[in-house]
Every structure is written in C-alpha cells, then in structure tokens.
Simulated scan of single mutants.
Amino acid sequence: MSNAPIDLNVDAKALGKVAVLLGGISAERPVSLMSGSGVLDALTSLGVDAHAFDPAERPLQALKDEGFERAFIALHGRGGEDGTLQGALEWLGIPYTGSGVTASGVAMDKTMTKRVWAAEGLTTPQYLALGRAELTRERIRAIPDELGLPVIVKPPHEGSSIGITKAAGYSDMQGAVELALGFDDELLFEQCIEGPEVTCAVLGQGDTAVALPVVEIRAEAGNYDFENKYHTDTTQYLFGTLPAALEAEIQQLVLKAYQLLGCRGWGRADLMLRKSDMKPFLLEMNTSPGMTSHSLVPKAAKAVGIAYPQLCLWLLSQARLDRK
C-alpha cells in the first residue's frame, strides 16, 4: 500500500493537450533532453495527450497557436528555470508546472537565494559575491584568507555543478575563477563545509507543502560533479542513513527555505552537513529538478510509494499561473 503524502488521484484525460518543454538554450540542455524524454514517456503511458516542445527550435507563440492547455517544464538552467520562460507562459496564459516568475528568478540566482535565507536566519555557508571587474589577481588571492580553504567557486546562475571548482589552495584560485567566468559575469565564492552531502525534495505549496525523505549522496572520491550526477553508476543514493531527529531537522529547514522563496509545485534543496557536529547548511534550491534515471526527486518519491509516472502526472495536475 502506498504511503504517498499527496493525493495521486488525477484524471489524465482532463488535463488537455500538454507540451513537455525540453532542451532549451542553457548549458544544461543535454540533461533537459533526458529529463523531458522521461517525462513525455511517463505522461503518454498514462493517457495524457502530451507532446515534446523544444523552445530552442520553435517560437513559444506556437504553444498558443497549436492549442496547448498546459506545459510541463522539464528545462533546466537559464531560459527555462530562471523566470523568463515562466513570464512568457504567464503572458500566453498557459498554466505551467513548478514555481512562478519571482520564485524561479530568485532561486536560479544562488547569491540572491543565500541573501534571502541569511536575512531570515537560515544556515548557509559564508560567501562572497564578486563581479568580473573586481576579480583582480590580488583580490582573488585574498579570498581564501576571508573564507578559509578549500573555497568553492561557482557561477551563480548555472546548475548541475557546471563551472564549479573546489579550490584546495591559493594556486587553484585563478584557474577556478577563469573557469567560472566562462559561464557568468558575477561569481560566488563559498566557504567549504566538509561532511556528508544530502538533498531533500519538496512537493506542494505554502503551508501544505511536504518534504520527501532526505537522500544522502556518496559520490566517488567525494566529487559529485556533472559526470557523477548523470553518466556513472558508481554514485550511491542512500535513505535512512541519518538519525531520525536530524532528518526531521533537515526537512523542516528545507520546507522553510522553500516557503521563504515562494516556491510551489516542487523543488529540491541541496545541503552539506558539517562533519564536526552534523549541522545542516543550505546550498541552493532547484525549482526545476532533474527527471532523468539518475535524478533525486524520483528516487525520493519512490521511497514513499510514488512511482515515476504518477509523480509526473501529479506535477502536471498542479500546473497553474501566477495571475488569478
């Protein structure tokens, strides 16, 4: 018997003609194509009138012209997860899955997300945000003195670990900055929290949102990069490894983080646990999580009795617009 925390009774036929938005223009296009293909297969298997739609190849106006009634956003990164697509769908009047314009835009900007969380007292690693013009060799060399070593160097508007470096020493900093500047004009430098890496997904909206089980991620050599996320089978995804009280603490922290950003539909927070005391630190919120065979939200949903096709159908049923 399923112990799913959401109502899975959804009439597939009542959802109308559905566009599964996939591909797109971001650096995460290959991942999006995998996610979207999985979602499309799942929805059609349940009788939904679903069709693939790549915004990189077709104008969004075609959604309206061809009578699409809902959109399942399986796009990741810029142009799909950052509020721009959500704004276009608002203008077209086509309900879509996931968070609205503002929440999507804030969550896609890791620096802005951290500012919101820090202002509300939620734990997140210490950080610096610096623009391209500020990144002189002298300034770069001083960053480890402020944050300690190692330092995590990120392009704050990318996902899937693209452009991220864990700089172990001063000599690594310049290369890390140059790599990240290939993706962004402003960089995020973050204190490295050493310890277990975990993730926690959320379904729903507001006070009725529910957190799914916490997943501990154990990647080869502790490096959960793009390759280990999507193209290897050596990464372990473990449930039930944490004490019950700590798991509940993480779930409550993630729910608060999700609600503060105004997220809806679904999302997934990534966190690090400080090994000295297992204190959780929020890293980022994903508002259009991956839906590939390696993805974490489907794994967490399965742990509470929600099969992949049913998860896709439920998410589609939650499609809506910001405007009333």
Rank of each mutant, 00 (worst) to 15 (best):
Q61E: 13
H76E: 08
G290P: 04
L212W: 08
H231Y: 15
L8P: 12
T287C: 11
L40G: 06
N9M: 01
A119I: 01
D82E: 07
T102V: 15
G148F: 13
N9T: 13
Q310Y: 01
L130M: 15
A14C: 01
K324L: 14
A56D: 11
L282F: 09
D11G: 01
T232S: 15
L253Q: 15
G100L: 10
L203H: 04
G195I: 05
D82R: 05
L273T: 07
G195F: 03
L40K: 03
T113F: 09
K299G: 10
K13Q: 15
I94A: 09
S26Q: 05
A319R: 06
Y96Q: 13
A118H: 14
E69L: 03
L187R: 04
V177C: 05
G159C: 10
R141P: 00
L181W: 02
P298A: 12
G23H: 05
K166Q: 11
E247D: 14
A56H: 02
K279E: 14
L135E: 10
L130T: 03
P289L: 10
F239G: 11
R58A: 13
G16P: 02
G175A: 14
I143Y: 06
S295T: 10
S161Y: 07
L43Y: 05
Q236D: 14
P280V: 09
L321A: 11
W91H: 12
Y308M: 03
I250F: 11
A142K: 13
E158T: 15
Q236G: 04
T232M: 12
G262T: 11
P156S: 07
V177Y: 02
V106G: 04
M291L: 15
A167W: 04
L85Y: 03
V210D: 03
A107V: 09
L149T: 12
Q236N: 11
G87N: 10
L253W: 00
P30A: 06
A201E: 01
E81T: 04
L92W: 09
